[in-house]
Amino acid sequence: MLGQIISNGLLMGFIYSLVAVGLTLTWGVMDITNFAHGEMLMLGMYSAFWMFQLYSIDPLLSIPISAAVIFVLGILIYKLIIKKVLGGTGLTALLATFGLSMFLKNLVQYLWTPNYRYINGAIVTDNKIVIGNIILGMPQVVAAIGSIAMTLIVIYFMNKTKTGKAIQATALNRDTASLMGIDTGKIYAITFGLSGACVGVAGALMSSFFPIYPQSGALYSILAFVIVALGGFGNIKGALFAGLIIGLTEAVGGYFLGTQFKYALVFLIYLIVIQVRPKGLFGW
């Protein structure tokens, strides 16, 4: 039984990680609080849903589509909102993205109703993997594998490519980065796009086994904030491991204490870690 719970927790943990990796790019690396991160995830789920509904494209195949859609959305959010408030105090960006988050939720509710939507009959649906007495749902397994793959792509991009290193340099010191000839405005836009691509992928992966509705991104976004802080701001590997810890805590805690307490336990773990390591598990 415990094996089953731990497996479920780990599978969920990988998805949490990917959502948190997206957030750590903007919040941790660029130091911009994007409260609309969860709504970007929600729109990623909807884009997979509509691809399925309108064009019968399986969520697995629409991963690159929703990644691209939310990548563009991320860039737009940067250009239309973040860029305008960047010079102001941290609170300005916070309020602006909070407003955006409300706006997106309401817009989606207005356009597509508050009803729960499900994707029925995706390729992965109803398939299982049985290992001994542990049963793993295929949608969850595929989502975890997809999340790991996307996280690895982001880690590779950040550490091995010229643009990834320019993102790091811009995060470390924006003015000095611009003295290197880096177009820092473009770097910020790309970072937001990449953050969007992460939740676009996560949204498509989750769409085959989670209800899709205007609020569906909210919880994951709160968890992502906790995970980013737990893993250490701006640390992508930190977000990966912290996501797993939260997934496990939630599953194991939910089993032993009852589901109503699982998030309390998540925040308790967070508070304890932050006492011992204020900069997070993998903080600089």
Binding site: K162, K165, A166, Q168, A169, N173, M180, G181, I182
Partner: peptide, 26 residues
């Protein structure tokens, strides 16, 4: 025009080689 700013401002978390490569960004 290349400007070496006051207080150095090297990118501390990047390697020395990556710092130099950032200098050659253009």
């Amino acid at each position: 025009i290349s400007h070496v700013p006051e207080g150095r401002h090297v990118f501390g978390k990047l390697s020395i080689k990556d710092n130099l490569m950032m200098g050659a960004y253009i």
